[in-house]
Computed example of a mutant assay.
Amino acid sequence: MNYYEVLGCSQDSTDEEIKRAYRRRLLQFHPDKSGATDNHEFYNVTEAWRILGHPQSRRRYDAICKQEELEDREKLEDGPVYARLSPSDFEESEDTLFYRCRCGDRYLITRDDLREKNVSLHVMCDGCTLIIVVET
């Protein structure tokens, strides 16, 4: 559950904006004020405020969210990312370009791979499971 979404605000919101969002949602979902019989949303709002209403717990929550985002991105990329590079970071060898991996082997791409602009290429090392992301 994303506590910022529960309160209807963003991660960039100030403490005061979060406080106002909490009060607005509290009135919206409070059983005595809204007449709602399902208290699920009300409990979600109070839980979000418990975390986001205090600077220290908010920092911890933001750090956890950032870590989950990095792990999700890594899963999408099918392995641990060794580096994010541009085509100028590669060395030339005939028709191919290469970049040395920390395992001692190489990442290989062709010039044709770099023709399309504004694309992220995911290239696996020839010797290990690390990948690089090349931004064209």
Rank of each mutant, 00 (worst) to 15 (best):
Val45Asp: 04
Thr46Lys: 14
Thr46Leu: 12
Glu47Ser: 06
Ala48Gly: 01
Ala48Leu: 05
Ala48Arg: 01
Ala48Phe: 03
Trp49Cys: 01
Trp49Thr: 01
Arg50Val: 05
Gly53Leu: 03
Gly53Phe: 05
His54Tyr: 11
Gln56Met: 12
Gln56Thr: 14
Ser57Ala: 11
Arg58Val: 09
Arg58His: 09
Arg58Asp: 11
Arg59Val: 11
Arg59Lys: 14
Arg60Pro: 01
Tyr61Phe: 12
Tyr61Thr: 03
Tyr61Ser: 02
Tyr61Leu: 07
Asp62Cys: 05
Asp62Tyr: 03
Asp62Ala: 09
Ala63Asn: 11
Ala63Arg: 10
Ala63Cys: 03
Ala63Trp: 01
Ala63Tyr: 03
Ile64Lys: 14
Cys65Trp: 12
Cys65Ala: 14
Gln67Pro: 03
Gln67Arg: 08
Glu68Val: 05
Glu69Val: 00
Glu69His: 09
Leu70Lys: 04
Leu70Arg: 06
Leu70Met: 02
Glu71Ile: 00
Glu71Thr: 00
Asp72Asn: 10
Asp72Pro: 01
Asp72His: 10
Arg73Val: 06
Glu74Tyr: 01
Lys75Pro: 00
Lys75Phe: 10
Lys75His: 07
Leu76Pro: 00
Glu77His: 06
Glu77Asp: 07
Asp78Glu: 13
Gly79Tyr: 04
Gly79Gln: 03
Val81Lys: 00
Tyr82Ser: 02
Ala83Thr: 00
Ala83His: 02
Ala83Trp: 03
Ala83Gln: 04
Leu85Met: 04
Leu85Glu: 02
Ser86Ala: 14
Ser88Thr: 14
Ser88Phe: 10
Ser88Gln: 13
Glu91Leu: 13
Glu92Tyr: 02
Ser93Thr: 05
Glu94Asp: 14
Glu94Gly: 09
Glu94Arg: 12
Thr96Gln: 10
Thr96Gly: 02
Leu97Trp: 04
Phe98Ser: 07
Tyr99His: 12
Tyr99Val: 00
Arg100Asn: 07
Arg100His: 09
Arg102Cys: 07
Arg102Glu: 10
Cys103Ile: 06
Cys103Tyr: 08
Cys103Pro: 04
Cys103Gly: 05
Gly104Tyr: 06
Asp105Trp: 09
Arg106Ser: 11
Arg106Gln: 11
Tyr107Met: 05
Tyr107Leu: 04
Leu108Glu: 10
Leu108Gln: 08
Leu108Met: 09
Arg111Met: 10
Asp112Glu: 08
Leu114Met: 13
Leu114Val: 05
Arg115Gln: 14
Glu116Thr: 15
Glu116Ile: 15
Glu116Asn: 13
Lys117Val: 15
Lys117Gly: 07
Lys117Glu: 15
Lys117Phe: 11
Asn118Trp: 15
Val119Asp: 06
Ser120Gly: 11
Ser120Val: 15
Leu121Gly: 01
Leu121Asn: 04
Leu121Arg: 06
His122Arg: 15
His122Gln: 15
His122Tyr: 15
